[in-house]
Simulated scan of single mutants.
Amino acid sequence: MYLWLVFIHSISAMVSIGPFFALIPMLKKLRASEGAVYEAYLDSFTFAVRLSKHAGHVLVFSGLLLMWLGDWPWNTPWIFGTFVVLFLSLFFMARAFSPTIRLLRKQEPNRTVLLNKLSRALYLYLTVLFIMLWLMIMKPLFW
């Protein structure tokens, strides 16, 4: 059972990080697109964010099960650090993508500013995800 949970945890980590890499080249195309193509790119962006969010739910649940079955305490440095970063990233993700995508759908006149904001959010969120990934893989001992 434990090994299957590790597998599920690993797959959900890949699914929660992977879609964001498809969005990097899409940002450039989003800047140059119009009409139905523009809407399709925004739909793809929304789908990737939702997929990542739901995979993140599986990731957290499987991680909690792994902690329980593996008898890992909450105060283990890499677990505590991961949960701190995860908690902070939840606030970030809730405000970073969906409100900006909603404004882009309204065809706001400051499209370039909004796309720059979306681009910054994408790279910042990838950085946060990689910090959590580093904590989970390297398991550093901070104390």
Rank of each mutant, 00 (worst) to 15 (best):
Met1Tyr: 08
Met1Pro: 07
Met1His: 10
Leu3Ile: 12
Leu3Met: 14
Trp4Cys: 08
Trp4Leu: 14
Leu5Asn: 03
Ile8Pro: 08
His9Gln: 02
His9Leu: 01
Ser10Val: 15
Met14His: 11
Val15Asp: 01
Val15Pro: 05
Ile17Tyr: 04
Gly18Asp: 02
Pro19Ala: 04
Pro19Met: 05
Phe20Asn: 00
Pro25Asn: 07
Met26Asp: 09
Leu27Ser: 02
Lys28Arg: 13
Leu30Gln: 04
Arg31Gly: 03
Ala32Val: 07
Ala36His: 12
Ala36Arg: 15
Ala40Gln: 10
Leu42Asn: 06
Leu42Ile: 04
Leu42Arg: 04
Asp43Thr: 07
Ser44Gln: 14
Ser44Leu: 13
Phe45Lys: 08
Phe45Asp: 02
Phe45Met: 10
Thr46Asn: 10
Thr46Phe: 09
Phe47Val: 13
Ala48Gln: 06
Val49Ala: 04
Val49Ser: 04
Val49Pro: 06
Arg50Ala: 13
Arg50Phe: 13
Ser52His: 06
His54Ile: 15
Ala55Pro: 12
Gly56Leu: 04
Gly56Ile: 02
His57Pro: 09
Val58Gly: 10
Val58Cys: 10
Leu59Gln: 09
Leu59Met: 09
Val60Thr: 05
Val60Lys: 00
Phe61Cys: 12
Ser62Tyr: 07
Ser62Gln: 10
Gly63Leu: 07
Leu65His: 11
Met67Phe: 05
Gly70Leu: 11
Gly70Cys: 11
Gly70Glu: 08
Trp72Cys: 03
Pro73Ile: 00
Trp74Arg: 11
Trp74Gly: 06
Asn75Trp: 14
Thr76Trp: 04
Thr76Lys: 10
Pro77Tyr: 03
Trp78His: 11
Trp78Thr: 03
Ile79His: 09
Gly81Ser: 12
Gly81Thr: 03
Gly81Asp: 09
Thr82Gln: 01
Phe83Asn: 01
Phe87His: 01
Leu88Asn: 01
Ser89Phe: 00
Leu90Glu: 07
Leu90Asp: 01
Phe91Ala: 08
Phe92Thr: 05
Ala94Pro: 08
Ala94Thr: 11
Arg95Leu: 11
Arg95Ala: 13
Ala96Asn: 01
Phe97Ser: 01
Ser98Pro: 13
Pro99Trp: 06
Arg102Pro: 07
Leu103Gln: 15
Leu104Cys: 01
Leu104Trp: 00
Arg105Tyr: 06
Arg105Gly: 03
Lys106Pro: 03
Gln107Leu: 10
Pro109Trp: 06
Asn110Gln: 14
Arg111Phe: 05
Thr112Gln: 15
Leu114His: 05
Leu115Glu: 04
Leu115Ala: 00
Asn116Thr: 14
Asn116Lys: 15
Lys117Arg: 12
Leu118Ala: 01
Ala121Asp: 04
Ala121Tyr: 03
Leu122Gln: 01
Tyr123His: 14
Tyr123Trp: 14
Tyr123Glu: 07
Leu124Gln: 09
Leu124Asp: 02
Tyr125Gln: 06
Tyr125His: 10
Leu126Trp: 07
Thr127Leu: 11
Leu129Tyr: 08
Ile131Gln: 02
Leu133His: 07
Leu133Arg: 05
Trp134His: 09
Met136Gln: 00
Met136Ala: 00
Ile137Leu: 15
Ile137Lys: 14
Met138Gly: 12
Met138Pro: 11
Lys139Gln: 14
Pro140Phe: 12
Leu141Gln: 15
Leu141Gly: 13
Phe142Leu: 13
Phe142Glu: 05
Trp143Met: 14
